[in-house]
Computed example of a mutant assay.
Amino acid sequence: MNPEHKEGPVAATIEHYTAKLPSDLFLWAALGSMAISATLKIMKKDEEALFVGQWPAPFLLLGLYNKLVKLEGHDKTDRGPRGGR
């Protein structure tokens, strides 16, 4: 970790809000979009099924980002070892 590196104000703000979201929210969103996609496919709505079927990967990537923010985000370096300012 580079102690001289500081996040910009936009990244810090995004991390502040995304760290409040539970990590499993993104997993459930991915699973839900897979179920919706499968349902649409069964209903012969192929284009809609393909559209919704592309959502799980971004949800899972957002979940990874969320987890990284919680473990290694700017809060860890800004707040110190005890989490207080």
Rank of each mutant, 00 (worst) to 15 (best):
Y17W: 14
A12I: 02
L64Q: 10
A19V: 04
E48W: 12
E7M: 10
S33V: 01
T13P: 00
P58R: 11
I14A: 13
K44E: 14
S37Q: 04
E7R: 10
N66S: 10
G84F: 11
A19P: 02
H16G: 06
Q54W: 05
L60S: 07
R85S: 15
P3R: 01
Y65I: 09
T39V: 12
Y17N: 11
G83F: 07
L62V: 03
L50Y: 04
E72S: 09
A29W: 01
T39N: 13
A29C: 10
A12Q: 13
E7T: 11
M1T: 02
P56C: 09
W55N: 04
K44H: 13
I36P: 00
P81N: 05
W28I: 01
E47I: 05
P58T: 05
I14F: 08
V69P: 03
M1N: 02
V69G: 05
G63E: 01
K45Q: 15
S37P: 03
E47W: 05
M1V: 03
L64E: 09
G32E: 02
P56T: 08
L60A: 12
I14P: 00
S37Y: 03
S33W: 00
P3V: 04
H74G: 09
M43N: 14
M34N: 14
N2K: 06
T13Y: 09
A35N: 01
N66D: 13
W55G: 06
K44S: 13
M1C: 04
L60N: 01
F26M: 10
K45T: 01
P56W: 06
L61Q: 13
G8Q: 07
F59R: 02
E7N: 12
E15T: 07
P22Y: 01
P22N: 10
A57C: 01
K41F: 15
K70V: 08
M43P: 00
V69W: 03
G83P: 05
F51M: 12
L61Y: 12
F26N: 02
A19L: 05
A30T: 01
N2A: 11
P22A: 10
K76N: 06
K6S: 08
L25R: 06
H5A: 13
H74N: 07
A19E: 08
I42V: 14
K70M: 14
Y65P: 00
L40R: 13
L68Y: 13
V10K: 15
E15K: 11
N2R: 04
T39A: 15
A49I: 04
A29P: 00
H74D: 07
A49L: 06
M34E: 11
G80C: 08
L40N: 13
K44D: 15
H74I: 04
P3F: 06
L50I: 02
